[in-house]
Amino acid sequence: MSIVAENIVKEYKRRGKSFIAVDNASFTVPKGRIVAVTGRSGSGKSTLLNILAGMIEPEKGSVNVDDINIFGVKASKRDKLRAGKIGIIPQNQSLISGLTIYDNIRLQSIFLSQRPFLPNSSFSGMVSVLGIDDLLSMYPANLSGGEMKRVAIARTLTGNFDYIFADEPTGELDKLNSEKVMALFRKEASAGKGVLVITHDDLVSQSADIIYTMEDGRLKRKK
């Protein structure tokens, strides 16, 4: 069981000119592994992640999530599929203002009726590893960028997804916290989850099992 992308082509129109964001990319995110995609900004990494998650439709190519062609089904079914299987940690701030950090974290599980939120020991363990236990009763407006990123990571991890997609998860984090986050991702992979990380941080990519680089829309496997 894995996510398999074959011959993905995605084209954008920018100022009247045609621009190829993803040029015939093929790769796999297997369960139990960490896959990293590196490259400079603007190389098309985020677009690739969006396509793999079924949020953008490519001009050509297919994406199979656990043997289901996600672009061969209706949009509503595709959304449901993604929602149940893939947890996403976006690059930018994605916490809901007006809700406490604790509420923000457990918000994820209200969309996963089969996997209710359990504030058990593994939850508190993860929260303390990420160093956010003191922040639970605070509001996003009071948090720093790095703290908000760690909360978003906690939120996705509580969802117990089959696949985790993380776009620059260590973006605002220092070395220590970055290492902790990668350790958590490793734990997920060991538990049989597939982890896809988009990053330009060498530290992150080096701890991955499979590494691709992306340059001008073209994907190349490095490891």
């Binding site: 900004s41 603007g42 985020s46 992640l49 949020m55 976006p90 930018n92 620059e168």
Partner: peptide, 12 residues
């Protein structure tokens, strides 16, 4: 609203 609106902002 499409959710990729969120992700778009990551691209420069």
């Amino acid at each position: 609203t499409e959710c990729y609106v969120l992700m778009r902002e990551g691209e420069s």
